[in-house]
């Protein structure tokens, strides 16, 4: 098993914005090793979200390759990408994106259901994780009945309950106050340190950057600074 989880080589991505081409990423080379906690930073339009999306298989590069866990994403079909996301990755979104018609417990079970995990095991894993995250008493509530912090914790639970190789979080703290942001970051740090989950976040929240072990700064589609010193 290779030590490298993500390898981006010469990745370029250009968008059409009202017929004006906008370069989001320009020949980016980027490697993430197993067990890292990386934050991608930079101002809006720097390309950090684009890079995160390319790593997550949500978007495709115009040129260059993206490899996740030894698999080159460029060669995969939409369905194969779906399966890769389902089995290898966990996502935490800025706006939680829990399914409004399902309870917290059901939301956490949801991806396991997609994976075809047996009902008993699903219930067991979801319950124990919710308990670990302090949401045991909220398990039966629907997202509309939870606070922002609780929703985001449930969303993290949904993302990690399947033991993904890679946890991707796009602006996870954008809708949270500083108290709940801190709780969330403690949770991510614990996951990273205790269970060795590889985490990549895109953020411009200094608090998030502070918790990560490696900070990569982007500007105008290029990596301008890669501070992996704190990883040591």
């Amino acid at each position: 098993m290779s030590d490298v989880v993500v390898r981006c080589s010469g990745v370029t991505r250009t968008y059409q914005d009202n017929a004006v081409p906008v370069v989001a990423l320009q020949g980016v080379d980027f490697v993430v090793k197993r067990g890292e906690f990386v934050s991608l930073a930079g101002p809006s339009g720097s390309g950090k979200t684009t890079l995160l999306n390319l790593i997550g298989g949500l978007d495709r590069p115009d040129s260059g390759t993206v490899e996740v866990d030894g698999v080159t994403l460029n060669d995969l079909s939409e369905s194969e990408l779906s399966d890769l996301r389902l089995h290898q990755m966990g996502f935490v979104f800025q706006s939680y994106n829990l399914i409004p018609v399902l309870s917290a417990q059901e939301n956490v079970e949801f991806i396991m259901q997609l994976q075809g995990v047996a009902a008993d095991e699903r219930r067991e894993r979801a319950s124990s994780l919710l308990k670990d995250l302090g949401l045991a008493s909220m398990a039966g509530r629907r997202p509309g009945e939870l606070s922002g912090g609780q929703q985001q914790r449930a969303a993290v639970a949904r993302a990690i309950v399947t033991n993904p190789v890679l946890l991707l979080a796009d602006e996870p703290s954008a809708n949270l106050d500083s108290g709940t942001t801190q709780e969330l970051l403690e949770l991510l740090r614990t996951l990273n340190e205790r269970q060795g989950v590889t985490i990549i976040t895109a953020t411009h929240d200094p608090m998030v950057m502070g918790y990560s072990k490696r900070q990569v700064n982007l500007r105008d589609g290029e990596i301008v600074e890669d501070n992996s010193s704190r990883a040591a």
């Binding site: 939409e78 779906s82 389902l86 996502f91 409004p100 997609l114």
Partner: peptide, 16 residues
């Protein structure tokens, strides 16, 4: 839209 986007992001197949 957001919900369907999320479903696709977390790995639900187009057919589903």
């Amino acid at each position: 839209v957001q919900e369907f986007g999320m479903l696709r992001a977390v790995g639900m197949r187009p057919g589903a």
